[in-house]
């Protein structure tokens, strides 16, 4: 049923959440991202697609400055979040990442209990006044991660004991717990089986109500299923960006067409 879920075209113009202008990324001497400008809307799922090594993950990691942890990586250009440059010297990446959460390719629950996994973010950011408050946040986040019913009886057990799909939803719940405004997902389903993938995709669609979601994906079908906007990256360039339905039915650039018809990739 999911592959038929082609999203309705965005009816009304939504608020711009992230505005990237002329972004360049260098890894040492390698020019990994070239002149990328893109506007990411609020309450929308934006998909980044492209062949492997095209820079889509690198660009995604620029959006919450995860690239800062890599010594040789250098970012130029402007990325504005609600009009504020996130690469401004005054910006603390720690504060930024609380606003722009991230979910990774492989589920990476901490070797702690399920409860502590979720509570980790709220604790470090000081989102709960007391234990009861924290309990509420944990429950709310797990519900949003669509995993509450499966784990509510074993919150004190280690998160690493869950199945792959449950782990990934736990990680999504963990990211949601810090009340971010943007959720970045780096191929969140690539390590999951089809059933778990379906569950996560359903979750992503629900999250769109409250967040701006950016998802990097390898699978064009997945992009078509979950996203409203799609950006196609090729060799570090943003080739085409637009409504998902338009990209998949009527691509402008010949490279996009080759990719979605399977001639390159």
């Amino acid at each position: 049923m999911y592959d038929t879920l082609i999203p309705e075209n965005a009816v009304d113009q939504k608020e711009i959440k992230i505005n990237a202008e002329d972004v360049q990324v260098y890894y040492g001497d390698t020019h990994a991202i070239k002149d990328v400008s893109v506007k990411i809307e609020d309450k929308t799922v934006t998909a980044f697609i492209g062949p492997s090594g095209c820079g889509k993950s690198t660009f995604l990691r620029c959006l919450n400055r995860m690239n800062d942890t890599i010594d040789i990586c250098r970012v130029e250009g402007k990325i504005l979040l609600d009009g504020e440059d996130i690469y401004d010297k005054k910006v603390d990446p720690v504060q930024l990442r609380a606003k722009v959460g991230m979910v990774f390719q492989k589920p990476n629950p901490f070797p702690k209990s399920i409860y502590d996994n979720i509570a980790y973010g709220p604790r470090i950011h000081g989102l709960a006044k007391n234990k009861a408050d924290l309990d509420v946040i944990v429950e709310k986040s797990l519900r949003r991660g669509a995993i509450w019913d499966e784990v509510k009886d074993r919150l004190d057990q280690p998160g690493t004991g869950l199945s792959g799909g449950q782990q990934q939803r736990l990680c999504i719940a963990r990211a949601v717990a810090t009340e971010p405004e943007v959720l970045l997902m780096d191929e969140p389903c690539s390590a999951l089986d089809p059933i778990a993938t379906a569950q996560v995709e359903e979750l992503i669609d629900e999250l769109r109500q409250d967040y701006s979601v950016v998802i990097v994906t390898h699978s064009m079908q997945q992009a078509a299923r979950v996203s409203q906007k799609t950006a196609f990256f090729h060799l570090g360039n943003l080739v085409e960006f637009g409504e998902t339905s338009q990209i998949f039915t009527n691509p402008v650039d010949p490279r996009t067409e080759s990719y979605i018809t399977g001639r390159i990739g």
Partner: peptide, 26 residues
């Protein structure tokens, strides 16, 4: 694994928080 670190940084933890609460316990 680096994934642990990424997970923690991705949630907005500082380095010392990541070390003390994720890496060292792990």
């Amino acid at each position: 694994p680096q994934a642990m670190r990424d997970g923690s940084y991705g949630l907005g933890a500082t380095k010392s928080e990541t070390i003390k609460q994720v890496i060292l316990p792990a």
